[in-house]
């Protein structure tokens, strides 16, 4: 059974107000929060649910992709804490007003934001691609899919 939830676009300065308004309508549990990088735009997205009725709302906010920051919602939704930490680590988004945003997976001080489309994935560049070999001898692909030419230029 597929249930579609409409996406509601929110301005950055109304983020907290929009999330608390969803909570007031019953959707007071954060199911997940993440970011979406389309290369042209960077969004933060949160899916909030009403556990009683399984009704849900999806809120989205476009951020400045050069200096992405947004108010943290953890004071109202404690369940957003882990998601904000992960989104901070993977997309480099600053969540303002949080007590701490310590790293989950990456080494301390590594601010490379690996889930941003602009981040060069070093391991992908350095690992030999198993698909490099060609059984036909022709049409050998030079770069594996997902590895951009500009990542390899200064090798």
């Amino acid at each position: 059974m597929t249930q579609t939830t409409a996406i509601i676009d929110i301005a950055a300065d109304e983020w907290v107000a929009a999330c608390t308004a969803s909570a007031a309508r019953g959707c007071d549990v954060v199911d997940w929060l993440t970011a979406v990088d389309t290369l042209e735009s960077l969004f933060v997205v949160v899916h909030v649910v009403d556990p009683g009725s399984s009704r849900s709302e999806m809120l989205r906010c476009e951020l400045d992709s050069e200096r992405p920051e947004i108010e943290s919602i953890t004071s109202w939704f404690p369940g957003a804490d882990w998601h904000e930490r992960e989104t901070h680590e993977m997309f480099g988004i600053e969540f303002l007003g949080r007590s701490q945003t310590n790293a989950l997976l990456m080494r301390a001080g590594d601010a490379s934001s690996p889930m941003r489309k602009t981040a060069a994935l070093d391991a992908r560049v350095r690992t030999p691609w198993p698909g490099q070999e060609s059984t036909t001898g022709r049409r050998r692909q030079k770069l594996p899919p997902g590895v951009r030419a500009e990542w390899t230029r200064d090798e």
């Binding site: 690992t127 691609w129 198993p130 698909g131 070999e133 060609s134 059984t135 692909q141 594996p144 899919p145």
Partner: peptide, 14 residues
């Protein structure tokens, strides 16, 4: 080699 190239994890070798 189709599967080898399409595998997102690069875990097939042939």
């Amino acid at each position: 080699m189709v599967c080898v190239r399409e595998c997102p994890s690069w875990c097939i070798s042939l």
